[in-house]
């Protein structure tokens, strides 16, 4: 359940970003980008989000988790592409395990969708 600690970071970040917005607005949706290698269960994260946003200005907003696939690049033959969510990092073409992980480790708050009163 590292999702709960992580969600605390998300909510802290969201609230501080909302403060920067200044003018009165309502948060509709928070989008978080998480690489597949982060072992995050989106359902746990959204559950934690609901709990942790209670009684804050973010209450009632939803959390969307965008999962980034694992992309590797072979240092032997140069092949690059998406691999499945396991850790047997091996080049699909030449089977070398000298590979570099290009994506899949991301973890950041990406976007806030807010509704402003006009």
């Amino acid at each position: 359940m590292h999702e709960f600690s992580l969600c605390q970071e998300i909510v802290t970040a969201v609230l501080s970003e909302m403060e920067k917005v200044g003018s009165p607005c309502r948060l509709i949706k928070t989008t978080v980008t998480a690489g597949k290698l982060r072992q995050i269960v989106p359902e746990y994260l959204t559950f934690a989000y609901e709990t942790l946003t209670k009684d804050t200005i973010a209450e009632g907003s939803t959390l969307e988790v965008e999962v980034v696939p694992i992309v590797i690049k072979c240092l032997q033959c140069g092949w690059s592409g998406e691999v499945e969510g396991n850790y047997f990092f091996q080049c699909v073409e030449c089977k070398s395990n000298k590979v570099e992980i290009m994506s899949g480790k991301e973890l950041y708050l990406k976007n806030l969708e807010v509704e402003k009163d006009e």
């Binding site: 970040a13 970003e17 990406k110 969708e113 509704e115 006009e118």
Partner: peptide
């Protein structure tokens, strides 16, 4: 009411 997207890109760790 209008909805606005705010791009953040803030590291969560």
């Amino acid at each position: 009411m209008s909805s606005t997207q705010i791009k953040v890109y803030r590291d969560l760790m």
